[in-house]
Amino acid sequence: MALATSLNASGGIDTAELRPGLADPVHDSQHIFRGLLTALAHPGRPVTLPGDVAGPEPLDPATTAVALTLLDYDTPLWIDWIADTPPLRAYLKFHCGCPLVERSQDAAFGLVTDPENMPRLALFAQGRDQYPDSSASLLLQVPSLEEGPAVTLKGPGIRETATIRPAGLPDWFWNDWRLNAAQFPLGVDIFFTCGRSVVGLPRSILAEG
């Protein structure tokens, strides 16, 4: 698509830079969704997402792909302060149409690009007994999926154990995760993203750091 060029030639209407979304919204998002299902079915296993899409700073392609696939008009989104820029807001509003909320508790999805300074997990929607599905899903973009401290995962979808090494997490993170897993079936689900990869961490998984 010649979209990027046409946007550069903004012709005096406006200087806002609106980057393109998925080239083929229906099929790309289906492939990405399939990838996310795989990531949740095999917690800890990195999945490379199709649909190489360059979103606005500071989003990695995987983060953008997940956002374009999962967010829509019915999913209130909370974004952390680093990501919360006018171009990113414009991008998500245009392509996803998702409402942006101020309070993390009100969000169906949390988009975090600076995990070190993110809110505690309990500050996101945990779900209700009648509707555990009303809890939040978090997109945590980390600087690396390989260079952080090793964490061992156990639970449904893992034959014995799996090891992940997401970097840049706050020191309280895995302790919070224990509390999160303890209140199953309530609790948040997490997608770690980096580059074009995603790792799923559903609430049913136990982690040992």
Binding site: S10, A16, L18, R89, K93
Partner: peptide, 11 residues
């Protein structure tokens, strides 16, 4: 409305 893409709403 600063969040809306201005590109489509010049006026």
């Amino acid at each position: 409305m600063d969040a809306a893409p201005r590109s489509a709403a010049p006026q």
